[in-house]
Design a protein around this nucleic acid. Structure first.
Length: 774
DNA sequence: ATGCCGTCTGTTTTT
DNA sequence: CAGACGGCAT
């Protein structure tokens, strides 16, 4: 056991490089750690925290560490615990949003909210905005839901409130006046509902600190050491929050010490207000700040890093930074151009199978894409190939309609002021309360300045028919019963009671829509989630549960032990790493995305996104694209991304380059290309991208695209209980004839292992593969 | 009040 | 190719 009191060998510095060690041991008011991808920043942060505690410079409760996702927070806590054991108790290690919620719950009573406020996600915000625009006839003044929602979000990120904004508008422009009116009503409705939207969580915390300096001082004195991860992605509100917290107190107590970690090359959230200047100008904001640069990369091979460096060096006005690795060149990057998105997906599946048979776990393989819409083709081929995968993010569990329905019941119990939630459950499941009744209830509520929940209690005097009145009374009674259960604790008991009394699950099972069975199962899964919550949080309240639900981030859903390939957007991928990474859809219009083309700094940010994707890979990096992509119902020709040309050609091994496809589709060679095993036939790293030739000089729109658009199709077929065994001959729509070599799995999950005569070995999910016995 | 059918619309990334 | 919405029939 190493001794702590030996001066020259602090165990916390063991195994760190000189820069990392300095980042751990530096003491001062402000420290900026410029941490390149994979440079061990989490290690540095946890060791720095441990160092502060070990040296007794800080109590655990004086440490506030802010990360980007709950998963990152959990990982940091876990790693800190490995060093410190139970001494991490009392530390705040959480995301910006969770930290703010925690503060706001304590202080809500100070400014017109209660501690049981609920949190509106962007969908809820939009629903509310839609309603307000309708009520105020905003349409006639150019208000669209998304326009208003984006503008309000932007304003809040800039810490503008209704009144400060009102001072800056042009009172002669009716559109601006109308927007202000909508903004004001939105703000009023949120307060009446005792709710905050996502942006409020940050902005209102800042307002709270500014309006009540004595409250702010409490937190300033509490948090003496503040550490912020992913600082390049902070927006103005987050920046202001950090400034408020590190300010000197009224009584002269000096400001807390601040450590920020970030990498401006990985700034990819400007669309939601992240301002790269926060990190670029850190030294100006905090005079005397120390800056430490971490450039040694412990994650990727040198080839991957060289590609990343080459790409990112095309962004001008950035500080030079060069990642390097001591772990050798490794394999070359692999490029592949498919005829269609499905063709691209098939290549990915084949490569994953190859990697897997070489001993790479599915777990350590990830597929990235720019837009969620790209998942469709990938999923179709993955399913057909019986490849275990998991979508990370995307349409999240908690965004499903049936889950939101049930959550709204819980909200109606926990925060009766929340009119949005109460209105949502009014007629789900159907109980004969239509829009007209809903409107009268809302009217009564508005006129008497009470909540909709309160209006339900006065339904007897509102002159509805006996059926409607009875339905409302029983709903109201049911909510009261659930409310009475709150003190006894258990979230799962409350939910179980509500589900039973509403008959929600039974109502789903009674319909003839086959999808409703799956929905019923989702609701049951939610019940299981609440049981798990109760188990893990014996003192957890319903509000705690709802908060947790509101603040889950896409990356939080990752399950490291799932044994599946992970599929996610490039944004979600930030902060993660995998042995093998497939970066898909590397095409113009997609990466860079067409929507970013017009925005200032758009293409540069897209390049950073590409860079983030590249630097996630430890050993294997695949860059794939498709020659044609169906977006919007119809198939369009796609061009290779400009970023591909920024990768030195000697680093990239094209299994099938864009040029190969151009040749075959233009020339006579088309049609003879065989799939699978012959992917590599026409490669060589030469040709494309090397000089003036390449892509741009090719004819703009090669015609015979219908010929090759679906070389690998998305066809599936219901084979029922087709029986197959080793030795059988089958015919596949895409791969031609082949021999079954093995059959594994049971039931609907039976998988045929087939050696195709021309397309090589594949695995197929028998139930749906487009095959027949021959 | 509800359910069904047509039309329109719009598609980046997310806490 | 969706999901949202308006209009119609029951």
């Amino acid at each position: 056991m190493t001794q702590l009191d030996i001066f020259d060998t602090d165990p916390l510095l063991e195994g760190l490089n000189p820069q990392q060690a300095e980042a751990v041991s530096f003491r001062g008011q402000a420290l900026l750690i410029v941490a390149g991808a994979g440079s061990g920043k989490t290690r540095v942060l946890t060791h720095r925290i441990a160092s502060l505690i070990h040296s007794r410079e800080a109590w655990p409760s004086q440490v506030l560490a802010i990360t980007f996702t709950n998963k990152a927070a959990a990982e940091m806590r876990e790693r800190a615990e490995q060093i410190l054991g139970s001494a991490t108790e009392g530390m705040w290690i959480s995301t910006f949003h969770s930290s703010c919620v925690r503060i706001l719950r304590r202080e809500a009573e100070n400014f017109g909210f209660t501690s049981s406020f609920t949190i509106y996600d962007s969908h809820d915000s939009r629903t509310l905005i839609k309603r307000i625009i309708k009520d105020l006839d905003g349409e006639s003044y150019g208000c669209t839901v998304s326009g208003v929602a984006n503008k309000i979000s932007r304003l809040k990120n800039e810490l503008a409130d209704v009144d400060s904004y009102a001072r800056n508008i042009n009172p002669n422009d009716p559109n601006e006046v109308k927007f202000l009116e909508v903004f004001r009503e939105y703000t009023r409705s949120l307060q009446a509902a005792n709710a905050f939207d996502f942006d409020d969580l940050l902005a209102q915390t800042v307002f709270l600190f500014r309006a009540f300096p004595h409250v702010a001082d409490v937190y300033r004195k509490k948090f003496r050491h503040i550490l912020v991860d992913e600082y390049q992605d902070t927006n103005h509100a987050q920046y202001a929050l950090i400034h408020e917290l590190t300010r000197e107190c009224a009584d002269g107590t000096p400001g807390a010490s601040l450590t920020v970690v970030g990498d401006s090359d990985q700034s990819i959230y400007s669309f939601r207000g992240a301002d790269i200047r926060n990190i670029a100008e850190f030294e100006r904001d905090f005079p005397g700040a120390k800056v430490i640069l971490l450039e040694q990369n412990y994650r990727s091979t040198q080839n991957i890093l060289s590609a990343a460096n080459a790409v990112i060096s095309n962004n001008f006005d950035r500080k030079a930074k060069n990642l390097w690795s001591a772990s050798g060149d490794g394999a070359k990057l692999v490029g592949f151009t498919g005829y269609s998105a499905h063709d691209e997906a098939q290549f990915i599946v084949d490569e994953i199978n190859a990697l897997h048979s070489q001993g790479v776990d599915y777990n350590s393989i990830a597929v990235f894409y720019r837009t969620n819409a790209q998942t469709r083709a990938l999923e179709e081929i993955f399913i057909r190939s019986a490849l275990p995968y998991r979508l990370v993010g995307g349409t999240k569990f908690y965004e499903r309609a049936e889950i939101k329905d049930v959550i709204c019941y819980l909200i109606a119990v926990a925060n009766p002021a929340d009119g949005l939630a109460v209105r949502r459950i009014l007629n789900t499941p159907k109980r004969g309360i239509g829009p007209a009744t809903e409107a009268s209830l809302q009217l009564f509520a508005d006129q008497n300045n009470v909540s909709v929940r309160e209006a339900l209690r006065h339904v007897d005097g509102l002159g509805f028919g006996p059926k409607v009145t009875g339905a409302i009374n029983s709903l109201s009674k049911m909510l009261d019963e659930a409310t009475a259960m709150l003190d006894a604790g258990k979230v799962s008991d409350v939910l179980a009671h509500l589900l039973e009394k509403t008959g929600y699950i039974d109502a789903l099972r009674a319909t003839r829509d086959p999808q409703d069975e799956a929905r019923a199962e989702n609701v049951e899964e939610l019940l299981a989630v609440t049981r798990e919550f109760d188990k893990n949080n014996p003192d957890g309240t319903l509000i705690d549960f709802l908060t947790e639900v509101s603040l889950v981030a896409a990356a939080d859903e990752l399950d490291d032990a799932s044994g599946t390939v992970s599929l996610m957007t490039l944004h979600t991928a930030k902060g993660l790493e995998y042995d093998a990474v497939f970066l898909t859809g590397v095409e113009e219009e997609l990466l860079p995305h067409r929507m970013s083309a017009g925005e200032p700094g758009g293409p540069a940010e897209e390049r950073r996104l590409f860079y983030v994707g590249i630097t996630r890979a430890r050993k294997h990096l695949y860059l794939t694209l498709a020659m044609s992509r169906a977006m919007f119902g119809q198939t369009n020709v796609a061009l290779p991304s400009r970023y591909l040309q920024e990768i030195p050609s000697e680093l990239l091994d094209w299994r099938q380059s864009p040029e190969d496809l151009q040749r075959s589709s233009l020339g006579s060679g088309y049609g003879s290309r065989s799939l699978g095993s012959s992917y590599g036939s026409s490669s060589s790293g030469s040709g494309w991208g090397s000089s003036s030739g390449g892509w741009d000089s090719l004819p703009p729109s090669p015609k015979p695209k219908t010929e090759w658009a679906n070389r690998v199709t998305n066809q599936i077929r219901d084979n029922g209980d087709l029986e197959l065994q080793a030795g059988d001959r089958i015919r596949h729509v895409d791969f031609g004839d082949g021999t079954v070599t093995d059959v594994t799995g049971v039931d609907t999950k039976r998988v045929a292992h087939v050696r195709f005569d021309r397309a090589g070995a594949k695995k197929l999910l028998i139930k749906i593969a487009p095959i027949e016995k021959i």
